[in-house]
Write a protein that binds this DNA or RNA. Structure first.
Lengths: 171, 171
DNA sequence: CTAAGATAATTGGACATCCTACTATTTCGG
DNA sequence: CCGAAATAGTAGGATGTCCAATTATCTTAG
C-alpha cells in the first residue's frame, strides 16, 4: 500500500532532480555549479523569510535592520549614505529607499555633512537604537543562536561563502 | 608609506567586522549564526547578479528561467501553475507574474486543464524551448562550469545547504 | 582659475516577492 | 445531494533591488 503511506515518503529534492537532468543532457561539467547556485537561491529564500518574520513585529525589514546596525556600530552613530551602500554592497538607490523608510519611522535622521555639501549623513536616533537592540535580541534568540545547522556546518558554510565573496571582490 | 600602498591592502570583511561586534556586545552564542546567514545574503546577491547578467541578453530573468526549465524537463512540456509554485517554492502570485511575462514573450502559453476547470496548465512553446536551450548553454559556459569556487567547496556548500533546506521542510 | 570630469544623492521605471482579498471550481460531510 | 470547506488562480498593494538619468557639488587638469 505505498500510496497510503506516501505522506511519509520524502519527495525528491528539486535540486537533486535538476542535477540529474543536467547530467542526462550532457552538461555534467556544469551540474555541480548549477546545484550550488540554485541551492544558494533557495537557502537565501528560507533564511530571509525566517529573519523577516522575526523583524516584522518591530516594523522593519532585514534591509533596514542592516542599515540600523551599521549606524549603531559606527563610532559617531552616523554615516554617509555612500558608505552605507558600500558596506552593504547595495545600490545607492536602495540606501535612499531604506533611509526614507527608517526616517519616516523616526529611527534615523538625515543631517548635512559639515564639509561636503554633496554628502548626506544618516544618524541613528534614540528610538532607532532601541529598535536595533530589541530586534537584535529577538533575531539572536529566534534565529542566529540556532540557525538550523550544526555549529560545524555553520562554520563550514560561512567559510566557503567567505571565499566566494572574496573571489567576487566583495571585500 | 602605508597610505600610498593602501590600494593593495584588503579592506576588512564587513561580516568579519559584524562578528567581532557581536562578540563584543555579549552575543557570542549568536555570532556564528549571524555570520552564516549574512554570508548567505551577500553570496546570493553576488550569484544572482552574475546569473541575471548572462540571462539578460535572452530577455529573461532567473525566475522566468526556472519556470522555463521546469516546463522543458516535464514529460508533457506543461504543468499546472500550482505545481510550478510548489517546485520552485514561491508564492502563487509570483508564478502568475512570471507566466504573464513569459506568455507575453511567447515562450509559454496558458491552456485550460482538461478535467479541472480551476487549473491552468502552462505549456512551453517552441520558442520557449529555444530560449531555454541557448540560455542554459550560456549559463553553463559562463557561470555554472566555473562558479567561482573549487569543486570541493562547491560540493561542500551544496551539501550543507541541502541539509539546511531539508531541515526547513523545503523537500 | 576655469572648464571638464568625478562624486553624492535622488527620482522614475522595471521586476520579483510576499500578503490580503476575491472569484471560480471542486470536494466532501451530514 | 446540497451547502460548507478546500483548492486554483488572479488583482491590487507594499517592499526591495537594480538601472538610467538628473541635479548639486567637489576635484582636478590645463
Amino acid at each position: 500500500m505505498p500510496d497510503r503511506m506516501s505522506f511519509v515518503t520524502s519527495p525528491t529534492d528539486p535540486i537533486a532532480e535538476a542535477t540529474r537532468q543536467w547530467r542526462e543532457h550532457g552538461w555534467a561539467d556544469a551540474a555541480a555549479g548549477m546545484a550550488a547556485i540554485t541551492s544558494l537561491m533557495r537557502a537565501h529564500q528560507i533564511a530571509l523569510a525566517r529573519v523577516e518574520a522575526v523583524l516584522k513585529p518591530h516594523g522593519i525589514t532585514f534591509a533596514r535592520y542592516e542599515v540600523l546596525m551599521l549606524l549603531w556600530f559606527s563610532s559617531r552613530g552616523s554615516l554617509p549614505m555612500r558608505v552605507i551602500g558600500s558596506r552593504l554592497q547595495v545600490h545607492p538607490t536602495s540606501v535612499t529607499n531604506a533611509v526614507d523608510r527608517l526616517e519616516s519611522a523616526g529611527l534615523v535622521r538625515r543631517e548635512p555633512h559639515p564639509s561636503d555639501r554633496r554628502t548626506t549623513l544618516v544618524e541613528i536616533t534614540d528610538a532607532g537604537r532601541d529598535v536595533a537592540a530589541v530586534a537584535t535580541k529577538d533575531l539572536n534568540d529566534q534565529v542566529f543562536t540556532d540557525p538550523g545547522l550544526t555549529p560545524e556546518d555553520v562554520a563550514a558554510v560561512t567559510s566557503v561563502l567567505e571565499t566566494y565573496r572574496r573571489n567576487a571582490g566583495d571585500f
